[in-house]
Amino acid sequence: MSSDVRTVDVPHLGGSTIGYRFGEPYDSSLPTLVLINSFSTSVELYRPQFADPALAQTANLLAIELYGHGETRAGYEHFTYWDSAIADLQVLEALGISEAFVLGTSQSGWVAARMAMLAPGVVKGILPLGTSMDDESPRSHELGCWDGIDFCTPSIDALAEPVGDDWVVPGEFVDAVLGAGLGEDVSPDERSFWHAAHQRNYAGDAGRRRLRISTINLRDRDGLHGRLDSVRCPVLWLQGTADQVYSVANAQDEITRFVSSADAELRIVEGGQHFLSASNPDVVNAAAAEFVKRWA
């Protein structure tokens, strides 16, 4: 656990402890930008955002860890993306933050959309990065998105049986996540960082269970197409051309489905990977600062 990560208790799912991190001490004179992490990562995904002085001067940066990730724990063993959206909103309430923008990478892009649906008075804008609003549908695969069923099912099956206290997530799992998220050119230091982080977060039988439910959620998630017309806040979607998980063609189609949004824009990032905030932080940080300034 990073020394910068704190926890806050919220009532959802039988009582939950949610991991979060501020980039700088909270400043009530600034708007807040919530940062939600991608599959099996943690608040540490947003180290490049925390390190950007210009972004820090624009907004309070508040990273929140989803159920099944980092330091977040729930009273109930099962959870979905809707539960993470509700808990994130309860974190904002617990911290005394009445409104915020929400940036989400991959799985957290659709968590951001859920938050906007659930609390339109709280969420002032969303920034989905390298994401999809669909389930694992034939449509998604025909548009060039990965087959999440093929990716997730072997891990779900492998994680089905109880393990001992000395168990840690296999290195092959971490390498598969890094390959999908950042491509093949992951630096040795970054690879070592995420291996250590995964082994710390997913250890023992409780870690196995959290990782398995997180993987089931990714594979078996519900699509949002029928609900997207309830998103009324502005949307700025950034999609990388080198994203191995979700395609530009999918993003081009889905941005048009935010028919009630105050503004819905898609920006294509040349060479951008799936974990776009990590692969192209300068582009993401500048876009986020511009978006917050425009709509705050």
Rank of each mutant, 00 (worst) to 15 (best):
V269C: 04
A56H: 12
C152S: 12
G183K: 05
S140V: 00
V259K: 08
S260W: 08
T32L: 14
C233P: 02
L159E: 00
V5D: 13
A87F: 06
D220W: 03
D150I: 03
N250T: 06
D4Q: 15
E71N: 14
W194N: 00
D88G: 14
C233N: 01
R200H: 13
V177I: 13
V10R: 06
W110A: 07
H274M: 04
Y26S: 03
V168Y: 01
G125Q: 09
D27H: 11
C233R: 04
Q244T: 13
G148H: 02
L35S: 09
L13W: 09
E65A: 01
S137G: 00
V5R: 11
G164K: 07
L129V: 04
G240A: 07
L182S: 03
F101D: 10
P170M: 00
P138H: 03
H12P: 00
A249G: 02
F173K: 03
A180E: 08
G70A: 11
V231Y: 00
A251Y: 04
V102N: 08
T32F: 14
E77Q: 15
M115F: 01
A206N: 05
D166K: 05
D263M: 10
L238I: 00
Y202C: 07
R227E: 15
I126S: 01
S132M: 07
A74Y: 04
I64S: 01
M1F: 06
P128D: 04
A197Y: 01
I213Y: 06
L95K: 08
S108I: 02
D229K: 13
D220Q: 09
V122W: 06
F173I: 13
S261W: 01
L276A: 05
G70I: 03
S261T: 14
F193L: 03
T131G: 10
F101Y: 15
S84Q: 06
S2E: 14
T41M: 10
L224A: 10
N285K: 05
H12Q: 10
G179Q: 10
L159H: 02
G204C: 07
V245K: 01
A119H: 10
H195E: 02
A74I: 05
R73T: 15
W295F: 09
D135V: 03
H78T: 13
I216H: 00
D243P: 13
L127A: 10
L211N: 03
L224Y: 09
L30P: 09
R191N: 07
R232K: 15
A288L: 12
H69I: 00
W110M: 08
A59G: 10
H78M: 03
M133I: 11
L129E: 06
P31G: 13
A85Y: 07
A289C: 08
V284I: 05
E290L: 14
A94M: 14
L127V: 15
M117G: 03
D253F: 14
V5A: 10
Q239F: 04
A262W: 08
V34Y: 11
T131M: 11
